[in-house]
Amino acid sequence: MKHLVFAAGILSVAGAVAADTPELTVYTYDSFVADWGPGPQVEAAFEAQCGCDLRLVGVEDGAALLARVRLEGARSDADIVLGLDTNLIAAARATGLFAEHRVEAEFDLPVSWSDPVFVPYDWGYFAFVHNADLVAPANFRALADSDTRIVIQDPRSSTPGLGLLLWVKAAYGDDASGIWEGLADNIVTVTKGWSEAYGLFLEGEADMVLSYTTSPAYHLIAEGDASRAAAAFEEGHYMQIEVAARLAASDHPELADRFLAFMVSDAFQSIIPTTNWMYPAVIPRSGLPDGFETLVTPEKALLFTPDEAAAVREGALDEWLRGLSQ
């Protein structure tokens, strides 16, 4: 077996050396490159038109992705980083490693977008997902007053966890600590990441789990199961916008720009909804897949700008820790 693995390693190195077409390296998060993620289809679609080799490298998640780029600095092999979100943009910008883009697109986002460096490719709303037969609370105060049990993720180790932290902060500002104190007895537990929390919810440990408004679409479209729903909250829902950017030190700046332009085109955007289970940043001509029309659409979108998010998260984390540690 060992020989097999080594042989596979050697073959893949040999393959890379043999190719004389330019290679565009995209760092992204792990679930993007999984077989059932957008990666394989995106790679095939872009390679069909670029005359290049698209190499997708998956790194755990957005935060680990940024950490890797920071560690590598200007020496990085990456031409593109795909998979940061608005909460990581301020830190990413501060590294000075990213270059301005030349993409022009009409984004279908609930908020206006004009960032010179970071190009959005998909987005979603955070939401509590529950079984369709549950009468879900309509806001955080009602949730805190109810005996609905929820499971959430830790903002220190998880992207959705950080999203919830900022959601409560964006909706309640200075009252956020009060909300957390109220929620303390609803929270069954706090998990390291999304998978643990979602697994606990499916095991029946909690009535609701922090996820996305698009989660029920997976169950409906991929499993034909209409029994999950997302709770609409009156305060509005915090958004996650996922972005990509070109590295200033890229060896193939033009190819990288072409990829970013491809990323907001129909070919890429039509892959996103049923592989990444998020809303496309530019709705493709074919529209959204059947089933997406059943999803809750929040009346109000909440989002801190990257700078605001960077400024409030430390204090918001303290409130969260204090509220839940009593």
């Binding site: 830790d154 537990t189 706090v190 998990t191 390291k192 839940l324």
Partner: peptide, 13 residues
């Protein structure tokens, strides 16, 4: 330990 302690510990305590 981290994931076990956090998940079964019930929160940031």
């Amino acid at each position: 330990s981290f994931a076990v302690a956090l998940t079964l510990g019930g929160g940031p305590r």
